[in-house]
């Protein structure tokens, strides 16, 4: 019985992971295909990588996207941390329910709606106060900050709720003002969550097509917008090459981060065991 169940579970897991990874692997494999017909293998070649590096349009869009993602992640971490802190530590205040709503709704709001509503806001603001002038990098960044800060807020809030609040109270009790406590106690303790929040905000911005399409203006096409317009016309080996580069960058980053965290955790557990053993 038990055996049959574990066979079922293992095969479900194997199927699931195959489902998740075969598309990515096929992207990588066919990026080295000689033929322009992406799915028919015609020999190994790296020429599409060369073509990609020649493609000014893609490179320009990628650089723009990275700039926006960087700005977005930095601001979103600041605002999102504040929001998460307020929700986790400030207790009751007027309008708390609304703030909770505004930080969780963006997580599930369909992108077309967020994009459209922000565009209409920007247009209305421009006609009322003359800002923002036209649409472009600024409007895309603001739009991205709005939805990524919600993700950061959720991460920070859940991290803070697992941190013993009395640690912060102890710091106040020992004479540190609330602002100081926040900077020298709270922030260092939740620093891993800050890092993952930043990375999440960065990738989400780098990945967004729909919202950026609504709020971008002429001359500010982000990487996903360029990719989308190419992909709509059919498969293109250059895009495979681009995908491979992105996948490898992200994968190596995540694996490295995972290893570092794993090491730290192992060291920590060893320390704890030694402390317990020394006591006995």
């Amino acid at each position: 019985m038990n055996n049959r169940r574990s066979t079922f579970l293992v095969s479900a897991m194997a199927f699931g992971f195959a489902f998740l990874y075969i598309p990515i692997l096929s992207l990588i494999v066919f990026s080295f295909n000689e033929s322009k017909l992406v799915t028919v293998w015609a020999g190994f070649s790296t020429k599409w990588y060369g073509a990609l590096l020649q493609n000014e349009q893609i490179l320009g869009a990628a650089w723009l996207s990275v700039r926006i993602a960087f700005m977005n992640a930095t601001v979103a971490v600041c605002l999102g941390t504040l929001a998460g802190f307020v929700l986790a530590r400030m207790g009751r205040f007027r309008g708390r329910l609304l703030l909770t709503g505004m930080t969780t709704a963006p997580l599930v709001m369909p992108e077309v709606i967020t994009g459209l509503s922000l565009l209409l806001l920007f247009v209305a603001l421009e006609s009322m106060i003359g800002w923002p002038q036209g649409r472009g990098v600024t409007t895309i960044t603001i739009a991205h900050i709005t939805f990524s800060m919600a993700y950061v807020a959720v991460i920070i809030q859940s991290r803070l709720s697992s941190v013993d609040e009395s640690v912060e109270e102890a710091a106040q009790d020992l004479g540190a003002r609330p602002a100081k406590v926040f900077f020298i106690i709270t922030l260092p303790i939740i620093s891993p969550a800050l890092v993952s929040g930043w990375l999440l905000a960065f990738t989400m911005s780098l990945d967004d097509l729909v919202i950026a399409s609504f709020v971008s203006g002429p001359g500010s096409s982000t990487l996903p917008m360029v990719v989308f317009s190419k992909v709509r016309l059919g498969v293109s080996p250059e895009i495979n090459a681009l995908a491979t580069i992105i996948v490898l960058l992200v994968a190596s980053g995540i694996v490295a981060a995972g290893l570092v965290m794993n090491q730290a955790e192992k060291r920590r557990q060893r320390d704890v065991q030694m402390a317990v053993a020394a006591n006995e």
Partner: peptide, 19 residues
């Protein structure tokens, strides 16, 4: 392994299915 695909471009992963 579950999170990893989530960090790579959504658009490109959908594109992979065309192929």
């Amino acid at each position: 392994l579950v999170i990893l695909p989530f960090w790579t471009s959504f658009l490109l992963r959908v594109y992979a299915w065309i192929g």
